[in-house]
Amino acid sequence: MTGGTPPLLRLEGVTVRYRPDGPPALAEIDLTLRAGEWVSVLGANGSGKSTLARVLAGLIAPTAGAVILRGAPVGATETGLWPLRQAVGLVLQNPEDQIVAATVEDDVAFGPENRALPPDEIERRVTAALRRTGLEALRSVEPARLSGGEKQRLAVAGALAVEPAALVFDEATSMLDAEARARLLAVMREEQAAGRAIVHITHELEEAEVASRLVVLDRGRLRYDGPPAPFFTALAEGRLALPGLLPPFGVRLAQDLTARGIAVRPARFDPEAVVEAAWTSASKG
């Protein structure tokens, strides 16, 4: 990291306490986020994932430590946080928390309107965001009438319409059905390809498994920051025990088979590879 452009976002020693005497929700987190990268964040319920999302998106300022946006420290006041809020889009775990307008299209237009964009540009962005989240047909519907999954897609559309430098998804796939989930992951990949940084907070091990970088939180502390495979292998082999987390299905199946006397060491842990490895192992044995 010598010379060149500074990273999009850096957290340095970030600690967040919601109560002065309480345990920190985040403790001394150092984290760098670069343009165009995809970081998946795993952790048990209560590990600090949502607090991390709020810090990254400038919804809250850290109690201690610094948030640095493109080389410039971000202030802790409302005005100071503003550039961060402009740069980072956030999709909350509970979409109800971020729905503001009386119709679906007005809700998506809210962000671009706040940025005082020209009307035809707002219209273009709203239409594109609704199309990409599959909500075109519900354009003039009242958000209160949407299903949980539709509300979650609406929150995603609102974040996309702002076209921020980074997008943080806090369990944004949790209420989606399989199809909508696959569609959202595809949209996230397109956003990444367009040069945006993606932070994907999830409980879905199989979604985290495909990330280029995995960040793991445990009771507010950063426990891992690196490629997913070594982490899951360590978890599967019991070299690492973290509350709340399980290895992905393929890794567990390989473990279960090995425990039943079928030694399985596949090169990859996708379900098909593990099953094939079981057959190969049995025919040799």
Binding site: G43, A44, N45, Q93, H203, G244, L246
Partner: peptide, 9 residues
Amino acid sequence: AGLDPEARE
């Protein structure tokens, strides 16, 4: 929904 993998299990 929303539970971590272990809690879900």
